[in-house]
């Protein structure tokens, strides 16, 4: 009795090997397992929940269900979330920026998506994608909605830092980081969705993602100032984003001082 008891204490208890069915049940849900309709749960918050947890359900609705209704819902979510991050960005400078920045963020992001949409469709076709143009448009909106939702998740973080620092450079870096994380997950969803639908990895989507990020970055420069005070920068001057970010003295919050003219009297 004592011998067997001590043997039990000495040997670590090995958990039983789960059966394939148990393994499948414990595995995190994938596109395959969630690719089904939303059981009439198509209200705004239920779609938000599905975009985050079960994106394949939204994908199913786009392809088989009420595609117009779900597309409009995704557009509303994207616009709402982009407006929210725009308001937070505007809060740094205040004043007229509360009206200008949300508008610029929403229009800029949707315009960037519209500019890149034809190339997405053609590159997808070249990779063997079988989706129609409206379907590609809706799936892109789904990824934009996910990006927007993630932005909203970052709002408290952005607010804390905006209250704590006066450095516009730091805030610019922070928002860039937030956009980077959001866009990463948005593009990841896009790639996963098309890979699942076409049963193959769509290599050209990496190239398209790169182009889309460049267009977004340039758009942020075209629509400047997003963080500085309203009218503090000469927005009619055409600049590439690299020149704008790394150029000296153009990304401060101070109003531009006119150049001192030589005394010719």
């Amino acid at each position: 009795m004592t011998d067997s008891h001590s043997a039990e204490q000495a040997e670590p208890r090995i958990p039983p090997i789960p059966s394939p069915q148990q393994q499948a049940a414990e595995r995190p849900a994938t596109f395959e397992t969630n690719y089904r309709d939303m059981d009439n749960n198509r209200h705004l918050f239920q779609v938000v929940d599905a975009v985050l947890k079960r994106p394949a359900q939204v994908l199913y609705e786009i392809l088989h269900g009420k595609s117009v209704a779900i597309t409009v819902t995704l557009l509303v979510i994207a616009v709402f979330c982009l407006t929210a991050i725009g308001l937070m960005m505007a809060g740094y400078s205040g004043g007229e920026q509360f009206a200008a920045v949300p508008l610029k963020v929403v229009i800029g992001t949707l315009l960037s998506a519209a500019i890149c949409l034809p190339s997405l469709y053609i590159l997808l076709c070249l990779s063997g994608g079988d989706q129609t143009f409206p379907q590609v448009c809706s799936i892109l909106l789904q990824s934009l909605a996910l990006t927007g939702i993630l932005f909203v998740g970052f709002l408290p973080v952005a607010w804390i830092f905006s209250q704590a620092t006066d450095s516009i450079k730091f805030m610019g870096f922070l928002y860039l980081l937030i956009w980077g994380v959001g866009i990463h997950f948005g593009l990841r969803l896009l790639r996963r969705a098309f890979a699942f639908l076409n049963k193959r990895t769509m290599g050209t989507l990496h190239l398209w993602g790169f182009i889309f990020i460049l267009v977004l970055l340039q758009m942020s420069t075209t629509l400047r100032p997003l963080l500085g005070s309203y009218g503090s920068l000469r927005t009619n001057e055409k600049k590439f984003f690299v020149t704008h970010w790394f150029g000296a003295g153009d990304h401060t919050d101070k109003p531009a001082t006119p150049p001192r003219l030589p005394d010719v009297r």
């Binding site: 034809p118 053609i122 075209t222 590439f240």
Partner: peptide
């Protein structure tokens, strides 16, 4: 196919052009 790709890239080229000094 080549012109379809170029046509799809046209909005991006125009956007870059708009931002070119």
């Amino acid at each position: 196919i080549a012109t379809l790709i170029l046509g799809a890239m046209t909005p991006i080229v125009v956007f870059i052009l708009y931002n070119t000094p």
